[in-house]
């Protein structure tokens, strides 16, 4: 498999969409799930605006802002990693990937802090429909961040071993595409759940 991709990988620079097509099938499926979730959230909120507005104020907007910053920054780092591997600089690529993973870790820590706060107050999925959606949506996304970090780590390990080159770097593109999807979902989730009134 690696051998075949190596021989034909020279087209990867101009290829569209970037990365393995299979991941795009997966990304579309994921966006579909999140899309439905968002639509359902909007629908549920419409039927219960006061409840949603009231409990929205209990969320920690600063924490969410830090997390938004963390994810956007991490996406930027991933872009740099892709740029580095396109120039054949594997070690630089690894460093940018690690930086991106670190920003992901920041997200996880901040988000865990928020969860600890909620759970400390005895809030769970059955508390009310706002918390049901808030916890479901953010936790579903939280797991995606972990998943994205695992993927980036796998890409980083392979890059560290010299598995990618300037001409053969589909794997890096693939991991980057997934990470951008995770970031994108948060950029919709954040205003929808934390900000919109």
């Amino acid at each position: 498999m690696t051998a075949t991709t190596a021989t034909i990988g020279c087209s990867s620079q101009s290829k569209y969409p970037s990365g393995d097509l299979a991941i795009w099938v997966f990304i579309l499926a994921e966006l579909l799930v999140f899309g439905i979730f968002f639509a359902v959230y909007a629908f549920a909120r419409m039927n219960n605006v006061e409840l949603f507005n009231e409990f929205q104020q209990h969320l920690d907007l600063n924490a969410a802002l830090i997390n938004t910053w963390a994810l956007i920054t991490s996406s930027y780092f991933v872009v740099r990693a892709v740029a580095a591997i396109k120039e054949g600089n594997s070690q630089l690529c690894v460093r940018w990937l690690l930086a991106a993973i670190a920003m992901g870790a920041v997200f996880l820590v901040v988000k865990s802090g928020e969860y600890a706060h909620h759970f400390g107050q005895g809030i769970n999925l059955s508390t009310n429909s706002f918390y049901m959606f808030y916890l479901s949506l953010t936790f579903f996304h939280f797991m995606h961040v972990i998943m994205g970090m695992v993927i980036l780590a796998a890409v980083a390990i392979k890059a560290h071993q010299g598995g990618y080159s300037a001409s053969d770097n589909t794997g890096v593109h693939t991991g980057a595409s997934y990470w951008h999807m995770v970031d994108l979902v948060w950029l919709i989730l954040f205003p929808l759940v934390y900000v919109m009134r």
């Binding site: 799930v33 979730f37 359902v40 999925l125 049901m132 479901s136």
Partner: peptide
């Protein structure tokens, strides 16, 4: 079972035809 399954179950099983 808790009511949130109505959301989780509806959303994901709506994808089961795919």
């Amino acid at each position: 079972t808790p009511e949130y399954w109505q959301w989780w179950g509806s959303i994901f099983s709506a994808l089961e035809p795919i």
